[in-house]
């Protein structure tokens, strides 16, 4: 027993090593959304193309809701891929966050418009209700408007194929 005690520091070191090594892979910037499993928050905001948009306008099928802005450089990187996804038939809605309407419309005119509807969130109030802390962020909702996933950062081929597509397929299967 006395001899075994000598191994205690070694065991502690080994356990700490494993725990800390595991920690290297974790991204502290990646926060789980508090809204997973919750319905879309209620809102009534102007649409970028005029009129008023409410959460009810985004229901009906599995969709992505993308938070973007012309001041967000990463959004420009993400834009072509979103356009491709939209062309494949996926419903994508946009939340144009704290932006200038004219600048946003010009951006869509120049780069193409992947969004079925764009919500002009001038004050960022919808952003706060969704727990958005930067752009771009992308939410995945089902046909009833329940939030299933939130991706922080750019949606690209890898994110779509490894994370979003399997969820979309599952949700579409569920709702049939």
């Amino acid at each position: 027993m006395g001899r075994l005690k000598l191994f205690v520091p070694l065991i502690i070191c080994a356990v700490m090593g494993v725990v800390l090594f595991r920690g290297l892979d974790l991204d502290p910037q990646e926060l789980p959304s508090a809204l997973i499993g919750k319905p879309l928050p209620e809102f009534a905001l102007p649409g970028l193309d005029g009129g008023t948009v409410t959460q009810k306008d985004l229901l009906g099928e599995v969709a992505l809701i993308n938070v973007w802005a012309t001041w967000c450089i990463a959004c420009k990187v993400e834009h072509p891929y979103l356009t491709r996804l939209a062309e494949s038939g996926l419903a994508i809605y946009g939340i144009n966050s704290k932006d200038d309407d004219d600048a946003a419309l010009q951006w869509l005119h120049q780069l193409g418009n992947p969004y079925r509807i764009n919500i002009a969130d001038h004050e960022g109030s919808l952003g706060i209700d969704l727990g958005v802390y930067g752009a771009p962020e992308t939410f995945l909702i089902d046909a009833d408007g329940t939030i299933h996933y939130r991706h922080v950062g750019i949606v690209d081929e890898r994110v779509w194929r490894e994370v979003l597509l399997p969820l979309v397929q599952r949700l579409r299967g569920d709702s049939v």
Binding site: L31, A34, L130, G131, Y133
Partner: peptide
């Protein structure tokens, strides 16, 4: 705040 941004 917690309802929107989580316990974090």
């Amino acid at each position: 705040m917690v309802a929107r941004y989580g316990e974090f």
